[in-house]
Design a protein around this nucleic acid. Sequence first.
RNA 1: GGAGCGUUGGUCAAGGGGUUAAGACACCUCCCUUUCACGGAGGAAUCACGGGUUCGAUUCCCGUACGCUCUACCA
Length: 504
Amino acid sequence: MKDNIRVRFAPSPTGGLHLGGVRTALYNYLFAKQHGGSFVLRIEDTDQGRYVEGAEQYIADTLAWCGIEPDESPWNPGEFGPYRQSERKNIYAGYAQKLIDEGYAYYAFDTAEDLESLRKSQPNFQYNQAHRNNLCNSLTLPESEVKSLLNTNTPYVIRIKMPDDETISFTDMIRGDVHFNSSLSDDKVLLKADGMPTYHLAVVVDDFLMEITHTFRGEEWLPSTPIHILLWKYLFGLHLMPKWAHLPLILKPEGNGKLSKRAAEKLGFPIFSMNWTDPRSREFTEGFRERGFLPEAFINMLAMLGWNDGTAQEIFSLSELVEKFSIERVHKAGAKFDYEKAKWYNHEWIKKTDIIHLFPRIQTIFQNKGVAIKDDENTYQIFNLVKDRCTLLTDFFEQSIFFFEKPGNTGIESIRPKWNDQKNSFFTEMIRNYTSLTTWKVDILENAFKDVAAANGIKPGELMLPFRIMLVGGKSGPGIFHIAELLGKEETLARIQSSLKNLQ
RNA sequence: GGAGCGUUGGUCAAGGGGUUAAGACACCUCCCUUUCACGGAGGAAUCACGGGUUCGAUUCCCGUACGCUCUACCA
């Protein structure tokens, strides 16, 4: 018996990896790590028609960004390779042959076009026990004809012969006992005409060969599980079959249904982990990373979308998740994705992460906007000051740009109507006062400001907003004396001075 | 159409035969802040429906409704 826990994430390289895929990968990873097992990445690229250039790399990059890197993958192979199904092509035919030899599968020569027209003319046509005897396959054709068709390289597929009226049961780790009647499924294609296996054959063969002990996959696979179980029974024996867990779907926020790229786009939030440009259509899709998400927040949010530890705790680090995750506590029902909540997670993670770790990404954001910022203590202090007001990493720019660039004059116009000589002389005196200061610290600045206001007989309240606008250019931001302190003496005075000049 | 799966506030959800049915997001009010956020304190808001079982169902059972997924030589 297998005693090492081995799980796999088996995505198809057909485009950007979306939310649901990352969550499946995450749950796999958490389970593997919690049990000291292995997390395997297998690329399910048996449909060459849907292969998209760059998608594999994207999967690898996503897992790396999230910090859930596989122990075995096409790029880091273990002893169970190859890890791309396209490179395993030659191993599936033998198993399909074995099924035929034992009467569990058969050759079918019907063309895709034939079947399509059949489906069109007959409402609910299925290639099943009701129809298989009227179709063109090794069940109906004489053996000699089958042989000659095979010898003349006539295209064929291999189909599973679903048993009649057999109850197939299994215990899902999330849903409990599930039952199906074998008559309800059609005779799925196992090996395609191009020699590639379909998912159904490949998943069973590879899970066996890779010694997978638990398979966690999306709920959309639940209805085809009986086929996989039959294949396990026919090929390897049920005692070696992995345990199943079918994860609930992530639904769109409005209405119902699976969260799609379209829906996300319409509502203005990302669905892919990182930026993705489709190589064929050149269509660009913004990712969570570029939107300003921290990977810690991204996986935290994903983990909680369908799982909780039974307490009120919502913020978990990856290592905490590894420790506390349990597949039994995963929800059965799908969850609507809530972007506001996703942002909340990010906000929490920004607040608890040291600026020194955030800095490189913030610097890049500034750089992309054409602003070079120094990697020094003063900059760190600035970001620490605005940190709590940033929900997304990109907010750092909006929240602190005035520290790095002088504000425009539009703000000045808003104070002009209430501007008077008294205020003018106050600020003139403020310049003198601040110039003479030897210590440039927040409380000294505040006290000096209030003293001068009192001496001039003006309430500080009337002066704070103009002062703020002079330094910031707008009405919001951290405490104004904190801003002045970090702006520095020279820059603060320069901004007051030029504002005064402007107000003349 | 068929099958499977699901259904606790607007959303994520805890709970589970007797509870004032947690908590979080969002929303509203107030406090804090001489700004705006953060933060703090409150508020409104929920067990899909109908039958059982039971002294008592949101919880257990059976139906119904609704939703979702699947029903390809796609995964």
